[in-house]
Design a protein around this nucleic acid. Structure first.
Lengths: 220, 220
DNA sequence: AAAACGCATTTTGTCGACAATAAAGCCAAG
DNA sequence: CTTGGCTTTATTGTCGACAAAATGCGTTTT
């Protein structure tokens, strides 16, 4: 149910998406070097489109590029994860506030319906997180903010990094039903047009999520 | 006193910086089309480096690119400005919070010294804003957060857009001394390691700034 | 006269080759 | 044996040319 409506039209687009997918899923290991020549043969495109793809990945902070040296996939670190969640807290908190201000009644009703359908799935299988229900929920809030900068930074940038951490560190864990309740409360605040509460609840929600992942990181 | 330590080493870098400067300062008008061929002759580089420069500008949200069509400089609009300040409020608020947590005592002392020197200048000339003192202050807070994502999004992205609005809409206005006092209070909160207050004061500071600019926009 | 089709032109996307820079290996000197 | 500088090699940066797509215009058709 991922409303991923970004469509590739040019070759560079397709290559960018493939590369991003392979990086996020760890097929291209974190911290590894990206050779333009090598990739151009592997993905069967010219070096120019590989270059463009790598440049785009660099702006997503999925790879780091150094002039005349090359590009490396970012390394996953506890500090990086913490920094990521600090930005998410600020940005998604604001997104929730703006969603409470700007979302239409229809959009809110849709989101409530979405949560209901999630609830049904949660009852039997404990797979709320895996089923991308969490992603879908956050995605709706962010787009509901109607703020292009917010949407771009989160959807095009940070979310892919978040997914990279989740996939490669094997996050799925508990926090399934508790996270669901938190989502409920946030939607209620938005439905009541309570900006202040919506922002605060969202920030807490992300803070809890961070603490949960941090704890796992330290145990592993 | 702009600590702009980004240095161009490759040709694409230099072209990117030149283009960005010309766009921010309105030499290349807002909303105008960017022809690759035309720019490549004008800036005396190949089309490839122009393409790379344009791509980088697109990730800064200074230009918008459409596949197989071309790139245009972003149009300035009241809605865009409001959205920009909404993101600034969230991001710089968090930056102030993190600055209160992570800045060293030396960094804080330096910032206080900076404010003192600003105070001297403000006494005679009413040029706090023009003198880039405001920019410098915000820059210190953001880097003080020690959060790479935060720094990157603001310094490499939003700040250039903010400057574009300021330059092209001729913002300089009053709010000189009041903004200075607000800066004082923020630094004090950081010096006291009061994260909560630092974030709140910074958010208010940006909110006031937004309201001030909005008012000007409506009058003009 | 308005709409639609097709051609021509212009602009962007893609490619392979060349130039410039940095990393690696080698030789020589201390 | 280590260290310094040089040469070699591999990789990135840059370029001009070709391919593909979109816009604009003229013609045709209803």
């Amino acid at each position: 149910m991922l409303s991923n409506n970004e469509q590739a039209i040019t070759n560079a687009d397709k290559t960018f998406f493939k590369l991003r997918k392979d990086i996020v899923e760890g097929i291209i290991p974190a911290g590894s070097k990206l050779s333009e020549m090598e990739l151009s043969t592997k993905y069967e495109v010219s070096r120019a489109v590989i270059r463009e793809a790598i440049n785009r990945l660099a702006t997503c902070h999925l790879v780091e590029r150094k002039a005349n040296v090359g590009a490396r996939v970012v390394a996953l670190s506890p500090e990086g994860l913490i920094q990521l969640y600090q930005v998410r807290e600020a940005l998604e908190g604001m997104a929730a506030r703006l969603a409470a201000r700007y979302m239409t009644d229809e959009e809110i009703a849709d989101m409530q319906a979405l949560l209901d359908s999630h609830f049904d799935k949660v009852k039997d299988s404990h797979s709320y997180y895996q089923e991308a229900g969490d992603v879908d929920f956050h995605y709706r809030i962010v787009t509901g903010s109607k703020n292009d900068h917010l949407i771009s930074v989160l959807v095009d940038g940070l979310y892919h990094l978040v997914r990279m951490y989740r996939v490669q560190l094997g996050m799925a864990g508990p926090r399934v039903s508790t996270a669901f309740d938190e989502h409920r409360h946030i939607v209620n605040a938005i439905a009541n047009r309570d900006e202040e509460l919506a922002e605060m609840l969202m920030r807490r929600h992300i803070l809890y999520s961070k603490n949960n992942i941090e704890k796992k990181l330290n145990n592993a």
